[in-house]
Design a protein around this nucleic acid. Structure first.
Lengths: 210, 210
DNA sequence: GTAATTTATGTCAGCCCATGACAGATGACA
DNA sequence: TGTCATCTGTCATGGGCTGACATAAATTAC
């Protein structure tokens, strides 16, 4: 990797760190782009060459983990029912977060703490979720063998998004506490649904039909 | 009602109408506050005396219906299980929307169509939902006789929020079509959950305990 | 009906987010 | 070293949003 690329990664991380620290100490709205840029010794204009908006710098880590989740989901075998695949992908993503180096983990925890206390960022996080919801619905619909405009995949994804929000959204927790919370919510969900709720009804009787 | 108040309501509605029309024809981002204000013959500064932001004017109707929903929920008898109360309150709210005068209904349909096609507004809608989620969780927890920090009420509310989003979020439909969609989703949900899923487990055996 | 009070509105000035255009600096590569 | 691509800084601009102050209008009191 060349010097140029290394510098870019460096600047990007420095901007994220400076932004998160300023956001957490002064508040998100009270912090200006100029302050973030000054902290990293770059021009304000350069900030916008790394992040499209003030919001993006705060949510970039969440966006990254969302991508990881989608990747993990695609890697689940087709034989798994949709909800199982979603749950396992979520476990896999949280596990991956625990494995990265401590600096990244610290950044992630900071970003989560910040998002939780800033309604504008909470909204942005939801926007990210919803922008990816189409992809999620399409994947679930594929596994169910129904159309993407069917209610069932939308329902499954919607329920699962709620589970994700509960996990990411409450309590100032470290990653391992978050992992435990995920298990708790998934256990609760398992007890709430009927078996096979995430699969389309078999409209033929088990032992043959016309 | 005095002249002063009538004029305010008039101006407010005129601003909403002008904004929705401009948003729908030119797009949300492409429309400026100055244009909206000019359309109503009011100074741009006055716009911000009626709405705190460009987003608020587009979501004001949704915010209103959300308040109606919360009111309807509070009016449900305590004997109803949480999920039933939520569903009935939702039915009640959608019913109320169908009863208002056509001008208001037209505004609502416009606002919904607009929100659906504008990701910034979709995010704002979610923000509104989440800002009210605390109240919703508190109400559900009260009916369940558990603490508001318990997982169960959060789960129930989260699931229900998803149902609401499916209803409000897809298809350019009129109010009656939306009502039918609500019934469809609620039917699907009814078939997916185990009986009593929205109530805390009775941790005593039915015929006596210490 | 007039005066005093309250309240809505217009004007002006300003901050901040965000973007386009251009020029200079710096790393990549032959 | 010289050429090229790319990153960066500077400048200018538009639009969202807010505070301060003055004016105009409606409400209330007399």
């Amino acid at each position: 990797m060349g010097l140029r690329e290394r510098k870019k990664v460096q600047t990007r991380n420095a901007l994220i760190d400076a932004a998160l620290d300023l956001f957490l100490t002064q508040g998100y709205e009270a912090t200006t782009i100029d302050q973030i840029a000054a902290e990293v010794d770059v021009s304000p204009r350069t900030f916008f060459r790394y992040f499209a908006s003030k919001e993006e710098v705060a949510l970039s880590l969440f966006a990254d983990s969302l991508e990881i989740f989608l990747g993990d989901l695609a890697a689940r075998p087709d034989s798994e029912p949709p909800y199982t695949a979603l749950s396992q992908a979520m476990r896999s993503m949280v596990g991956a977060l625990q494995d990265v180096d401590p600096a990244d983990a610290a950044r992630f925890v900071k970003a989560r703490e910040l998002t939780e206390s800033t309604s504008a960022l909470l909204a942005g996080q939801m926007r990210l979720l919803m922008e990816n919801e189409k992809r999620l619905v399409a994947e679930v619909a594929r596994r169910q063998g129904v159309g993407a405009d069917d209610l069932l995949p939308q329902f499954v994804v919607s329920v699962f998004t709620g589970i994700g929000m509960i996990c990411f959204g409450s309590g100032k927790q470290h990653l391992d506490v978050m992992a435990k919370r995920l298990e708790d919510v998934l256990t609760l969900a398992d007890g709430s649904f009927r078996p096979g709720w995430d699969l389309p009804p078999a409209d033929v009787s088990p032992s043959g039909d016309a």
